[in-house]
Every structure is written in C-alpha cells, then in structure tokens.
Design a protein around this nucleic acid. Sequence first.
DNA 1: TCTGGGGTCCTAGGACCC
DNA 2: TCTGGGGTCCTAGGACCC
Length: 450
Amino acid sequence: MVVFDLAHDNRGQSHHFMPHYAAWFAPTQVAAKIAPALTTFMSTSQPAPLRRIAHLDMDAFYASVELLRYPQLKGLPVVIGGGRRRQDEDLTAAQGERTPDKIPVAEFPRLQGYSGRGVITTATYAARQFGVGSAMGLMKAAKLCPDAILLPVDFAAYRHYSHTFKTIIQEIAPLVENRGIDEVYIDFTQVPGGQREGGRVLARLIQKSIFDATGLTCSVGVAPNKLLAKMASEFNKPNGIAIVFEDDLQTKIWPLACRKINGIGPRADEKLQQLGIRTIGELAQQDVGWLIDHFGQKTGAWMFDAAHGIDARPVVLESEPVSISRETTFERDLHAVRDKAELGAIFTRLCEQVAQDLKRQGYVGKTIGIKLRYDDFKSVTRELTLPDHTYDAATIRRNAGLCLKRAPLQQRLRLLGVRVGSLIPLAEHQAGLRKGPLRAPLQTAMDLAT
DNA sequence: TCTGGGGTCCTAGGACCC
DNA sequence: TCTGGGGTCCTAGGACCC
C-alpha cells in the first residue's frame, strides 16, 4: 500500500493518509499541488475503494452500564425505568457506607408493589424470559415478574459512557455520525485498514478498544451503506460483527421481514402485510409505480430503493438541533379548570426547563408550541411563530399560554409538553441583532438611489 | 392498572406574494 | 372578471426512531 505522509493537517495533527484521502483533509495548498498527480495515480494504478459504512450498536446499553456498577446483579431479572423518586431514595439509603457492588441483592427494590405510570426502558435477558420488555408499563411488568429488580434510569451515567465510547471510535475512525446515546455510523471507506476483510479488521479493533476501556460490548455491521450496515449490526448480537457486500443482498437481506428496514415502522408494516408483502425480497419484486400508488411518491420510491439495498445517504458528522422540548405525564389525570393551579405550576416549570435547555445549549427559537395528551391518549398540538427568536422563559410561557387557549380543554389531561422550534444558534442571532440597526438605513439609502 | 421522554421528517392545506 | 402557477411560510397531525 502506498502511503503519503502529509505531515500536518490544519489542526496541527500528524496523519498518514492514503492518496485519495489527501484531497479531503490536507491543507488546501498541499491538496492543490498534489491533486493532478493524485488523479493520474488513481486512474492508472489505484482501484477506487469500496464504500464501507459501519453501524455500531452498544449491546443492552443501559443494563450493561448498570451491571458495571452492580456486578452482583449479573444474570438476574432487572428492569430499568419508571423514575418514581422512591426507588432513588431507597437505593441511596441502601448504599450507606458500602460501595455499590457490596449491596446485597436482597436489598434492591423489586417490581412488586410498584404504583405509577412509568414504563420499562430496558430489561435484561433474564427479565425478558418473563415476557417483560421495553415500553411495557411497569405495573403490568410487576404482574409478570414481581421479583425483578427495578433500577431507576440514570441518564448521567449513560451519557458518560456514551461520550467515552464515541471518543474511542473517533480516535480510530474520525468520520462518526451520532445516532442517539448508544449508536453511531462510521465511514470506514478511507480509514487505513477499513477495507481489510470488508471492514471486519477495523470493526474488531474498535470493538476491542471499547471493551478494554469500558468493559462494554457492542455489535457492528459493515456494509456498502447505512441502511444495510444498520441491518447487519443486528445479525450477530451481542458482541458480534457482520460483514455485508452488495452481492449478499438476495441471500442475507431479502429473507428478512420488511420491518427490519430502518424507517418501516408498525404502520407501514401493517399496510404492507395487508398487501401481501412480508419480506424485503417480496417488497423488491414490486413495481415502483405500484408502490408509489400505495405509499406516495416519496415513500414509495424510497421503499423500492431500500428493498434493493440502495442508500446514498452520507455519514453526517454534525447537525444543528431543530427543536428543544420538555414534556411530562402527570401522576394522575388533571383537569384544566378543576386542577388549574397544579397544571399552571407544571406548565410554568416546563417553560423554565425549556428556556434553561436553550440557554445551556446556546440556541434561540421563534416557534413556541404545546402538546396535550388527553385521558384517552389522544394528542393535539398547537404552535405559533413569533416575529423574533427568544430563549426567555416568560416569553415562552406567555405564548405557550396562548397556544393552550386554542386547544380543547374539556377532557382531562394526562400529559403536557412545551416545545421551542425554528432554532438558530444564539451567536448567530446576536450577530444578526448587531447588524440589524445598521442594515436598515443602508437599505433606505440604496432604495433612494435606485 | 394500559401505553415515557426527547427528537426528526413528511404531508397537506391555507395565506400571501410575485 | 376570471384564471394561472410557483415559492415560501405557517400550522396540525402523524409516522418513526432511540
């Protein structure tokens, strides 16, 4: 393999790159000088690298992080979720002077006797044996498996481990796209070693590096694109690697249920089944036009491509948030009139939290919205757009209040949410404000001149 | 005793402007 | 007086994902 040493990139770091990599990452002057030579070189002696995209998915992430702290729970039925304060306090009290790993199993809170509206976020395999699983109500789970240990969700801990494993990946392969707390896409195409055994060698290196640093395992799929990589990462869970090439489409992808395609959810799947389509292979046999007739231009065309393993989406390194929101389900259903004071207090607190989130993350938004969920679980949203961006809690509260007035309030409510959308970075907004007063007179002068 | 919280993207209709 | 498209913004709902 030919390696060019480009000495230093614009962050002052030293790297070795394969030639075609240079055009992307070298300082412009260097790239300009070597580009013609590279083009000749590539066209004569270097075959284009295969596009190799990896999807990495942490195995039972929340439960695994909890087991690092409480190894004595390994193999036992554990569910994580709820968030009733009682569990936190029980556990804190139970800890006392002991380190977490020394707390006897008998002292952990059980599902039995749980009351409240929480749902399961994660269940260990031992717990799943009893038929409990993600999104199930905790009270229902308590009936199925009363002896299961119930741990409160600890997002601070999960975020910490999330940051750790993502940093490790980034040091090995710099092109990483975040997909929530426990998943990433990685572009292997230009990474040294990324082509070896179709990506298996690099996947193994990343897996081992994460395990050595954290004790956590993950599963990796490497394929020509994100769509196939995402499916592949599920093939050999847990702690597995799966390599998929274009030629594997018919043997490895087509036998799978349509629901395995990321983007086909319960509704689309049901509709497909009604049309007699169950597998991706069957989906692939359909006519594009026919799919468009049933699912619309965009979805139909997308489904057709997906079934044929086609997906050109790039790995996206950074993206700006579109909206920031807070919502809460009440302990008991509340009525807009009879529980006005309680509801008002919650409403104000949600607005303050959103305002705080905006400030902390450095954004301002100009669309203020609310979400209501009624006791029959039906939801409505109302929103309005302000003339200017804001992160001010009182402004958000006032306008969210106007939204609330436009919603039906006869029925009792189970959830209230507040959202701020149409976000722009605070810095951008402030720069705009400084320019604002200057621009108006200039505009006028120009208008007069023309 | 049903069903959390934080997001993104798409659709579709209406307003409004050119 | 009637009749156009196209583009953008706004709003409400819904599917989907982690």
